[in-house]
Amino acid sequence: MQEIISLLGFSFFSNAVIAGLLTSIIAGIAGTYIVSRKIVFISGGITHASFGGIGLAYFLGLNPFFGAAVFAVLSALGIEWSTQKAQVREDSAIAILWSLGMAIGIIFVFLTPGYAPNLMSFLFGNILTVTTTDIITMLALTVLLIAGITLFYRLILYIAFDQEYTKTLGFNTTIVRYIISIIIALSIVMSIRVAGIILLLSLFTIPQAIANIFTHDFKKMIFISIAFSFLGVLTGLIGSYYFNLPSGAIIIFTLIIFWSILKVTIKLFRTH
C-alpha cells in the first residue's frame, strides 16, 4: 500500500490514474448508450475502422489520434446514415467497414519507412504512456459528455428507447442521433490509449453487464459502470506496472472476473 501511494508521486503514474478515471467516465456514459441501444457490433465496426486512420496518419507523419478520430467519426456517420435510411441494421456493411479499416491501417503501417514502435500500444493499449496532452483532450471530452448527458438526459434516454415515438413529440431525432454518434466515435478514439483497439469494446460493455446485475435503470447503469470500470482500470494499472503486462488485457481480465463472481453469487442467492 505504502508503495502504491509513493508511486502516485511519479507523474507518469498519477497521469495514468487520472487517464484511467477519465476513460472510465467516458466508457461508462458512452457504453451505457451503446449497450442499451444494442449497437455493440456497430461500435466494434467504428473502433476497428479507426485503425485505418492511425495507419494513414503514421504514413503522412500526422498525429495518429487525429487520423483515428477522422476515420471513426466518418464511419459512425456512415453507419448512422445507412440505418436511418434503410431502417435496418446492415450487418455485412459494418463487417466490411470493420475489416477495411484494419486492412488500410496495416497497409499504411507497412508502407511507412522504419517501423511503428507504438503499434502494439494502439492495438492493446498502454495506460503508462499517457501524456499530459492526452489527459487534457480526455478531460475536454469528459466534460462534454457529462454536460451533454446532464442537460439532455431525458431526450437522449427517450431517443435511445423509442426514436419514432420521440419524433412525434416534436424533436428532430435524426440530428440528435448524428450528434450522439459523433460523440460515441470520439469516446471510442479517446479510449484507445488505455484499452487498445482490440480490447476497447470490452471497456464499453463489460462494466455495463456488471451494472445490469444490480439495476435496469439507464442512469444507475452509468454510475455503476463507471465505478466498476475504474476499479478494473486501477487493477490493470497496478498489474501493468508490476508485471509489465499490457494494461488493456489486465483491465478486461479483472472486469470479467468481477462479472463472473457477481453472476455466480447472485445465482446462488437466488436459488436458496
Binding site: 442499451s36 427517450y158 428507447f161 420521440t166 413529440l169 445490469n212
Partner: peptide, 18 residues
C-alpha cells in the same frame, strides 16, 4: 431497454423541450 415504467409514461410530457 433499461428504463423504468414511470419514465416511459413521463416521456409523453416532453413537449419538444430538450
Amino acid at each position: 431497454f433499461p428504463i423504468k415504467v414511470i419514465d416511459v409514461v413521463l416521456s409523453g410530457l416532453m413537449n419538444g423541450n430538450p
